[in-house]
Design a protein around this nucleic acid. Structure first.
Lengths: 298, 298
DNA sequence: AATAAGCTGAAATAAAAATTCATGCGAAGT
DNA sequence: ACTTCGCATGAATTTTTATTTCAGCTTATT
């Protein structure tokens, strides 16, 4: 937590970086340990670029500056987490199933790790504050992201928070058009490029609501640019990635972390509320309350 | 000296340090995390000493300079951040957030591992055969499990398979009442005790449909008993487990594995179908097809 | 062909780190 | 009691490092 995840960011931003910056990023990914002893000038020289390019790279991956980069890379190394394996899962009938499933597992776990490592405690706190104080919490995502939103809604309801969501664009537009600065709008879209989501996020922004988004890290990600507080999701999957749900799972995990922090802040009453809602649900269970079934899941 | 053990060095050198340096060392030992954002001047000011003193301290503990100090401290912190924590996630305001999140991560990953490790290849194959041959695939889950079902549906649709699902019990009852031995009924319920799900699963079973369930492993699990082919989900979470989505994520992962295997069996046409559906979705993207955005996610 | 958009590194500026050095203080020697 | 020495200290300076600016250049766009 706290300071970290820069290697993730480097590799996920790599494709959209300008040449000079990409060259530097690649070098760092290959020789992260050596970075510690280099100055901006050294690094520029080694990678055959300029000091300006190094600084631009720092901005691109959104760290505070060259020192910030160094410090983050060191933290990443110290945590020693560099996963192995190929970047993408591919559909290939010749791959034996068991090894496909192994990759599936590895990729999913990698996504979870990176997503959680990249979340800043201060961001989580800010988010929690806003969630608690919001007059309305409005969440929007369509397609696969709708699943994430739905889960979010269910969990906030359990805590008694005023959250609203629907996949219906028109209904949502009506709602978003009425948002004020006392409300939160949360957009979910891994690509950050879904037209409907962008449109409503823009509207929410214009209305002055606090805008938060769950999306992939990319400097050019248009959705992230609209956010007061973006939360970045890391996922690894096949190009035509049927089956794999890495981005979905990473998103759910990020939400979990948020909700967990939220529940922490009003632990006493949270316990009570949860008991209430669970009791309500339990009456639809077949077995008795004495069952050893873990609560809260259906 | 590489990167390491500087906090130790600081405390062991402390007794022999000059006053001004000792004051700085003590401050660092007390607030190591804050050091990251400070310059020499800042630190000198905070500790009421001078820049020269800070530099002297660096020399005293034999690091290369102020940047070296910073980097080493960060590495130390990062290393200490190793996950800790108990078997269960609890809502407890006293647990520091970062360690809660470490547990969250560990628990989630544990669930994924166990779930995937427990899946038998022969079961997956059988499942895939049935999915391909089914006249209708009907999936049912409510509450949190509805999220899983919805994801399943979206993915099967992309492959052009005839899947139907709704959370509405009555509609679902109407459908299930018409199932035949040529259909698949898939029930999702982590507890295996949800009344609605059990009732419809019973009905599907009676109608002779092939019944498969996603549920937790338990000898007495009533849902599992009704299944022709049960798939077991493993999850680890706190008792009142707001926030954590371990069972949800494990379920999604199991589904992923199934779908992945399924897509593998008709790789050629799967590729084509996927391209078609992705093209359809892409027209709602803001950017052009040349975008580097990974496909298939919204 | 004209224009815009955006990379790029050289050079200038700003900021930070490291050194130098005059000062002061206390202990040891006379 | 007074000098001398050793060394701790921070103000001021120098050196190094990071960051910004900008003009030229490439590459798409119309």
């Amino acid at each position: 937590m706290a300071i970290s995840g820069v290697l993730n960011r480097l590799s996920s931003t790599l494709p959209t970086l300008a040449n000079s910056e990409a060259r530097i990023a690649r070098w760092i990914l290959e020789n992260p340990r050596q970075l510690v002893d280099l100055t901006v000038k050294d690094l520029a020289h080694i990678t055959g670029s300029s000091q300006a390019a190094v600084i631009r790279l720092c901005k691109s991956i959104q760290v505070s500056g060259y020192q910030g980069l160094k410090v983050s890379v060191v933290a990443d190394i110290a945590r020693e987490e560099r996963p192995t394996g190929s970047r993408f899962l591919e559909i290939d009938p010749n791959t034996p199933l068991s090894s496909s499933i192994q990759s599936l597992k590895r990729h999913t776990i990698m996504g979870i790790n990176r997503t959680l490592n990249d979340m800043r405690e201060s961001d989580i706190d800010r988010m929690v504050q806003h969630l608690k104080q919001a007059r309305w919490i409005v969440a929007y995502g369509i397609g696969a992201s709708a699943v994430v939103v739905k889960d979010f809604q269910q969990k906030l309801w359990r805590l008694g928070l005023p959250v609203f969501c629907t996949e219906d664009f028109h209904i949502m537009a009506t709602i978003v058009g009425q948002l004020t600065k006392d409300d939160i709008f949360m957009a979910v879209s891994y690509s950050g490029e879904t037209a409907e989501v962008l449109e409503l996020t823009q509207l929410a922004h214009k209305r002055g609501a606090f805008v938060t988004v769950l999306t992939r890290f990319d400097r050019k990600n248009p959705l992230a640019r609209l956010a007061d507080l973006p939360i970045y999701i890391y996922a690894y999957e096949a190009s035509p990635r049927i089956g794999a749900s890495s981005s979905l799972i990473s998103s759910l995990t990020a939400m979990s972390a948020l909700l967990f922090a939220l529940a922490n802040t009003f632990a006493e009453s949270a316990q009570a509320k949860l008991s209430d809602t669970l009791d309500a649900v339990r009456s639809h269970r077949v077995t008795l309350p004495s069952s050893d079934t873990p609560d809260g899941e259906i």
